[in-house]
Amino acid sequence: MDFGPYLILASIEGAVQAAVLALTAVGLSLVFGVMRVVNVAHGEFYMIGAVLAWWVSTSVGGHPAVGFIAALVLAPLVAGALAALCDFLILRRVDYDPESTIVATIGLLYIIQQTTLMTYGPDARPIEPPFNERIALPWVQYGENGLEWYYPWGFGTTTYKLFVIVAAILLLVGVWAVLARTRIGMILRASQLDPDMARAFGVNVDRVYALVFGAGAALAALAAVLIAPIQQAHYLMGGDPLLLSFIVVIIGGLGSVAGTVVAAVLIGMSDGVISMFFSPTLAKIIATMLVAFVLIFRPQGIFGKRVA
């Protein structure tokens, strides 16, 4: 494939990855920002989202869109409720101690994976997209009659992929609006800056934490429902999104939602573009080292403020 179409194709793929990654990572960032804990089970809530999407869409029947819309509503609710329950039963009781939270959420990761394996099974299962038209993209070349349009082999995308990008952008704007423009957002920021002070002003910080933990998981599940029709649902699919969103949150700068989104776009896009120039595994190695070096020379992340 020529360089031009290849670059555009890699960019579209990168944008889809970035969109889903941004949603997943914003969930983690929210939890990290407000509660200052790492949720190692974050990827498992993502997985639950995809598995629920399969389950809902196969049990609803009718047009795939019906199941898809039902999954968009149900999956985040269930994942969120489950996460809030975990917060209530476990994290609250260890006082959000960072190390204990890591061990406890590793425990949760095992529990969720094994439960999914026993109920949903080990298979990769596909989910039918609500709509999915292939769009062949044109490109120009200099032919006998001067510049002319043609359709390069393999150069195209699907309507559903474009939908995922748009949907993720809308959802992210929604998250931003809630955080920046509503009372809930204000309470969250207050709890983040100074939990004790927030308590003194009558904020039920425990409830805020449960809500945030649930909302973080719900965002991951939502991202998974969006990507599942492109990919699949599998009980081990949570590992990769966890690593990537973790990276994105740190690169973006802790607790900065805008930074997280920018970092997701950077990581998602660069992954696609770097893969054009090197053999795939070498490209992965380079992209991984790049992340390490960005942090080495800017430990506070791109948007983070340097701690004195």
Binding site: I90, D97, V103, A104, G107, L109, Y110, I111, Q114
Partner: peptide
């Protein structure tokens, strides 16, 4: 489901023997 047992054990440990 030994991973389930391992997971539960980890959770219990953080709760009772931090």
């Amino acid at each position: 489901a030994y991973l389930l047992v391992a997971g539960l054990a980890l959770v219990l440990l953080t709760l009772f023997a931090r």
